[in-house]
Write a protein that binds this DNA or RNA. Structure first.
Lengths: 134, 134
DNA sequence: CCATTGTGGACTAATATTGTCCTTTTTGTT
DNA sequence: AACAAAAAGGACAATATTAGTCCACAATGG
């Protein structure tokens, strides 16, 4: 019941990007050094952020990555969902899972409520907000 | 970001116990058969529930396990915390961890809030409530 | 043409989770 | 006293997940 290290890397990366001048590209290498993240592993992680539409990339000499939308419009949920694909407190909440119990079993109902509550909290502050109050 | 299979086993076991007549002992074997849980693995799991004070055991011929307190006073949080030891959405929230960032960094603050929200939801229904509404 | 930077995929290593086996202790029953 | 039922405990094995590495390739600007 923890976010993975990879998710943490993604969060730190996104914050680093949010801190950079708007629209500027940062290279993967630079970020990996700043944040002490293995470069090749970071690359794989960035792929997930690209797929989720959170960052955009530019190849070549002055290329790199940058936020795909304003830091004020990105929250931790976006990042977590991008990296962990589908957040589900229990297998029975994952899409496509067919519970052998009654569909609305009380346990999964409770877990689902808890999960919603958690995600709602994570939606409250944007990256911009977070940078503001440190 | 999921509860483990072991935690699920523990939840199912606790519900089974809650369904049994008050004070009666059920054997590990019986539960493992009912719930289709590997017996030896279940035993290890039960140990955690004992340590957490959720169940009490009785050795010997008519022994087994039973709830250590009324089903109305046990919630999913109790079980999850018993099995997963210390729930922490991120390493930086685990007790004893020393964050290299400022102590109250905005990320851990957000994760902590989300975790609290989640746990609070999980505290709302007791095992008894859950049995009631299926 | 070449250095820089992202893309993609295969592979390995490390760690965590799940499951198994076997021995011991306790307890009621015969 | 002997025995069978049941929990306690610990070592080990199998799997699955997570993390990290390596290498060849593609785009881009100077």
């Amino acid at each position: 019941m923890q976010i993975t290290r990879q998710t943490e890397y993604a969060i730190r990366t996104m914050l680093e990007l949010a801190r950079a001048p708007r629209g500027e590209f940062l290279s993967t290498r630079y970020i990996s050094e700043q944040q002490d993240i293995p470069e090749d592993f970071l690359k794989k992680t960035l792929k997930l952020l690209v797929l989720a539409g959170l960052i955009s990339t530019q190849r070549g000499v002055h290329g790199g990555i940058r936020l795909a939308r304003p830091a004020g419009k990105i929250t931790l949920v976006d990042i977590i969902e991008a990296v962990e694909c589908n957040v589900a407190l229990n297998v029975c909440l994952a899409p496509g899972y067919n519970c052998p119990n009654q569909p609305g079993c009380p346990v999964s109902r409770n877990l689902a409520r808890a999960q919603q509550a958690m995600l709602n909290e994570l939606r409250k502050e944007s990256l911009e907000d977070m940078l503001g109050d440190q």
